[in-house]
Structures are given as C-alpha cells and as structure tokens.
Measured scan of single mutants.
Amino acid sequence: VSSEIYQWVRDELKRAGISQAVFARVAFNRTQGLLSEILRKEEDPKTASQSLLVNLRAMQNFLQLPEAERDRIYQ
C-alpha cells in the first residue's frame, strides 16, 4: 500500500463531493468514524497493523477503479 493513500482519499472526497461516511461505506464497508481516525493518524503503511493494512488496501483498490465507475457507486 502506498503512503500516498491518505492524500488520495482526501483528493477523492473533494473531487467527488462526497462525505467520509459515503466513502467509508462504499470503499471498505466501514464507518465514517474509523475513516476519520485513519486519516487523522496517517500511520505509515510499512509499519501498520494487519487490520489497518486490510482497510488501506481496500481503499487503494477502490480508488484504482475508473472514475466513472466510482461515481456510479457513490450514487
């Protein structure tokens, strides 16, 4: 997982004009609270716990989908 993931998520929230709650639900089936905590802490993926890595990997995989497909999912 790239250490850029945190910025990618922030950029996607702005680009798509969606809330953290929507992104958390569709990208990795978690709550806004968890996403907020992940973004606030910005732990280095190289030293992250296994559970954090699973979530970061799910977010990264979601962000690799084509933009149009992500936008459809947000609706």
Rank of each mutant, 00 (worst) to 15 (best):
V1W: 00
V1E: 01
S2G: 10
S3K: 14
S3E: 14
E4F: 14
E4W: 07
E4A: 12
I5W: 01
I5D: 03
I5L: 12
I5G: 00
I5T: 02
Y6I: 04
Y6P: 03
Y6H: 02
Q7A: 15
Q7Y: 15
Q7T: 15
Q7S: 15
Q7L: 15
Q7C: 13
W8G: 15
W8P: 03
W8Y: 14
W8L: 15
W8I: 14
V9Y: 00
V9S: 01
V9T: 08
V9E: 00
R10G: 05
R10P: 01
R10V: 11
R10K: 12
R10I: 15
D11R: 10
D11V: 08
D11E: 08
D11T: 13
E12R: 01
E12P: 00
L13C: 15
L13H: 00
L13I: 15
L13Y: 04
L13R: 02
K14A: 15
K14F: 11
K14H: 15
K14N: 14
K14S: 15
R15T: 04
R15I: 00
R15P: 01
R15M: 01
R15E: 03
A16R: 03
A16L: 02
A16K: 07
G17T: 06
I18R: 03
I18P: 02
I18C: 08
S19M: 03
S19Y: 01
S19F: 02
S19A: 06
Q20I: 05
Q20G: 06
Q20E: 09
Q20P: 13
Q20Y: 08
A21R: 12
A21K: 14
A21F: 12
A21W: 05
A21Y: 09
V22T: 08
V22Q: 15
F23V: 01
F23D: 02
F23M: 02
F23R: 04
F23E: 00
A24L: 06
A24V: 01
A24H: 01
A24D: 10
R25P: 05
R25G: 08
R25C: 06
V26T: 09
V26S: 13
A27H: 04
A27S: 10
A27F: 08
A27Y: 04
A27R: 00
F28E: 01
F28R: 05
F28P: 00
R30Q: 07
R30D: 11
R30C: 10
R30L: 05
T31G: 10
T31M: 05
T31L: 03
T31D: 12
T31Y: 05
Q32L: 04
Q32N: 13
Q32Y: 06
Q32D: 11
Q32F: 07
G33I: 06
G33R: 11
L34W: 11
L34V: 13
L34G: 09
L35R: 02
L35M: 06
L35W: 05
L35Y: 03
L35K: 02
S36D: 12
S36F: 07
S36R: 11
S36N: 13
E37G: 08
I38G: 03
I38D: 03
I38V: 06
I38Q: 01
I38C: 04
L39F: 02
L39D: 00
L39H: 00
R40N: 07
R40I: 08
R40G: 08
K41S: 08
K41G: 06
E42Q: 08
E42A: 11
E42L: 05
E43V: 11
E43M: 08
E43C: 10
D44N: 13
D44F: 02
D44H: 08
D44G: 03
D44I: 03
P45Q: 02
P45A: 03
P45S: 02
P45Y: 00
K46W: 04
K46I: 12
K46M: 12
K46Y: 07
T47F: 13
T47V: 12
T47R: 12
A48D: 02
A48Q: 01
S49Y: 04
S49K: 10
S49V: 05
S49F: 03
Q50H: 11
Q50M: 13
Q50N: 14
Q50I: 10
Q50D: 14
Q50S: 12
Q50V: 10
S51Y: 06
S51V: 08
S51F: 07
L52W: 03
L52K: 08
L52R: 07
L52Y: 05
L53D: 07
L53F: 06
V54F: 11
V54A: 13
V54N: 07
V54C: 13
V54R: 13
N55R: 07
N55G: 09
N55Q: 12
N55L: 09
N55K: 10
N55H: 13
L56K: 00
L56A: 00
L56H: 06
R57F: 09
R57K: 14
R57Q: 14
R57S: 10
A58E: 10
M59Q: 03
M59P: 00
M59V: 08
M59H: 02
M59C: 10
M59I: 14
M59R: 02
M59N: 01
Q60F: 08
N61I: 07
N61L: 08
N61Y: 05
N61P: 01
N61H: 09
N61V: 08
F62Y: 05
F62W: 05
F62V: 04
L63M: 08
L63D: 02
L63C: 04
Q64V: 08
Q64C: 11
Q64A: 13
Q64D: 14
Q64T: 10
L65S: 06
L65Q: 14
L65V: 07
E67A: 10
E67N: 10
E67G: 05
E67I: 10
A68P: 14
A68S: 13
A68C: 12
E69H: 07
E69Y: 10
E69L: 07
E69F: 06
E69I: 07
R70T: 00
R70K: 06
R70W: 00
R70C: 04
R70G: 02
R70M: 01
D71P: 00
D71L: 03
D71S: 05
D71Q: 07
D71A: 03
D71I: 04
D71H: 02
D71Y: 04
R72V: 10
R72S: 13
R72Y: 07
R72M: 11
R72H: 14
R72E: 15
R72I: 09
I73R: 13
I73C: 09
I73K: 07
I73D: 05
I73Q: 15
I73F: 12
I73N: 09
I73H: 09
I73V: 12
Y74R: 03
Y74L: 01
Y74K: 01
Y74I: 01
Q75F: 11
Q75K: 14
